[in-house]
């Protein structure tokens, strides 16, 4: 099969998944509604914090920059579909065995399906968060021409999250329960990933540690661009994301190959 046909095949999966999401518009919009709660609470926290600190800007972030930073981190994290539970279930219940005989790559099929959901949620979540941020903090501190660059980093962040969730789901080959791994991963993104607090506000050593870990490429990296965009920062962010993506793809391939050897198919 040539590259064009492959792209069309997985492109169809993206479309069908997105159409399925649109079939339940109330649920889809309600999920985006949670952005309002999260951003609203953060605005309260940072408004009071800036007010009490008596400072206009903290580590390069003033209040509008902080709020727009949070809109970006929350948009990315809340737009990532919960893939790991599906993989975990397929591994444990043996559905993965059926996938082995089908004419698609297991990881790419799930990536296409994941993208279908994520690309539907991403603009919705951003629109809701941005509307609230606009109303409470004014326009974003970013020129319009820079948004495609930020969008590319956000897209890579969502792809990185896919690779991590796929790896965690595949751990079901060896572990009875993988929920603990995903909870801890999510909370590490919250903290060391800079979801709630930009790494610029971390103490020195911890900041350096967080910067070299992949979690900051999922939240902090793309969101930092909103607070102070320049092309060199964008290039560094994207290069770091691509490095981690390559490393994670290697890890997933290893886990998948080792895991599939453990699959026993009996009878018909």
């Amino acid at each position: 099969m040539n590259l064009g046909s492959r792209v069309r095949k997985y492109g169809e999966v993206v479309l069908v998944t997105a159409q399925n999401g649109l079939a339940y518009p109330v649920d889809t919009f309600a999920r985006s509604g949670f952005m309002v709660v999260v951003i609203f609470v953060f605005v309260q926290l940072w408004t009071v914090t800036f007010e009490l600190s008596g400072q206009q800007s903290i580590a390069g972030f003033d209040l509008p920059r902080m709020i727009w930073y949070l809109v970006l981190t929350e948009t990315i994290v809340m737009s990532c579909p919960r893939l790991f539970s599906r993989i975990d279930q397929e591994v444990k219940e043996g559905d993965l065995a059926y996938a082995l005989g089908r004419p698609y790559n297991y990881a790419l099929f799930h990536y296409a399906s994941y993208l279908g959901n994520a690309l539907l949620a991403l603009p919705l979540n951003f629109a809701v968060g941005a509307a609230l941020a606009f109303a409470l903090a004014g326009p974003p501190p970013l020129p319009a021409v820079a948004w495609p660059a930020v969008a590319s980093a956000a897209f890579l962040a969502i792809t990185l999250n896919f690779a991590v969730e796929l790896a965690i789901g595949l751990l079901a080959f060896w572990f009875e329960d993988t929920y603990a791994f995903i909870w801890i991963y999510q909370k590490v993104v919250f903290t060391l990933g800079g979801l709630f607090l930009p790494l610029d506000l971390f103490p020195g050593a911890l900041r350096r540690l967080a910067e070299v870990l992949p979690f900051s490429s999922i939240a902090y990296g793309p969101a930092r661009l909103v607070a102070g965009f320049d092309t060199a920062l964008w290039a560094t962010t994207v290069a770091t994301q691509l490095f981690w993506l390559a490393a994670l793809v290697g890890l997933v391939a290893l886990l998948y190959r080792r895991g599939v050897r453990r699959v026993n198919i009996n009878g018909g």
Partner: peptide
């Protein structure tokens, strides 16, 4: 794993 995982999750 669920009990320890959730306790760690909260601790983070």
């Amino acid at each position: 794993s669920q009990v320890v995982g959730m306790a760690l999750n909260d601790a983070i």
